[in-house]
Design a protein around this nucleic acid. Structure first.
Lengths: 114, 114
DNA sequence: TCTCGTTATGTCTGGTTAGGCATAACTAGC
DNA sequence: GCTAGTTATGCCTAACCAGACATAACGAGA
């Protein structure tokens, strides 16, 4: 038996603002400089990746990635300053939350059994 | 913006052992002495309630409720000793976990904004 | 032996949601 | 102006999962 937790940020009306999948996606974009290649690496379609980013940006109220289409390499995407800073905050929060939940689980179920 | 968390117990192969919905259901059974009436109160069908309990019991390895069918009142269900004790442990763990996550959220996003 | 409200369980469907398909638009370099 | 690889977006479908429907069985009391 193990504890599983999903912790995410959402709006008042239950719309997902940000969660771990999107964090991974942004990290891949930061690394690869392109939504398209980030999506490939994550094993999802460009369409799916773009949709998630778009939804997050709309609900956050600012841009996470700055994009450009066209040119010899087709274009590309990089994280905005706000995007990077938000991502950092999110990761710190998530890491601490996961640690806390795991510690509590072990304290209440020391041997991992019900 | 607010934090939302789902924290539950599962088996190694991702099957849900116990979560908040089942906790509510067991509390209702404890109060009403019947799966049927508990389901009604929760606004779900008997079938759904019974299925959840059955699945949890199978994965926990012990009975949560003791049932009897037939008789003038049709039968009924009460929590087993093990069921009650597990439920208490679960609730304590969940309460502390929720408190911890909320506190961390407030410390990282003090004004509730990204 | 009949009744009544419950437990017990197989089967089916409908709604939600994630993701794919298809297509348009963009632009630096050749 | 053609090319190539990307961004941008509407639309459709498939898979999953929760829950409803239907039905059998149960048994103390009248």
């Amino acid at each position: 038996m193990r504890v599983k937790s999903k912790i995410w940020l959402e709006t008042e009306d239950q719309k997902i603002i940000f969660s771990d999948g999107r964090r991974d996606l942004l990290r891949a974009i930061e690394e690869l400089g392109s939504i398209h290649r980030a999506a490939q690496q994550m094993g999802m379609s460009y369409r799916a990746a773009w949709g998630k980013i778009k939804a997050s940006e709309e609900r956050l109220g600012f841009h996470l990635v700055a994009t450009s289409a066209g040119g010899p390499r087709g274009g590309g995407a990089v994280l905005t300053e706000e995007g990077r800073s938000f991502l950092d905050k999110y990761e710190k929060f998530k890491a601490e939350a996961n640690t806390a939940v795991d510690a509590l689980f072990r304290s209440h179920f020391p041997d991992g059994r019900p």
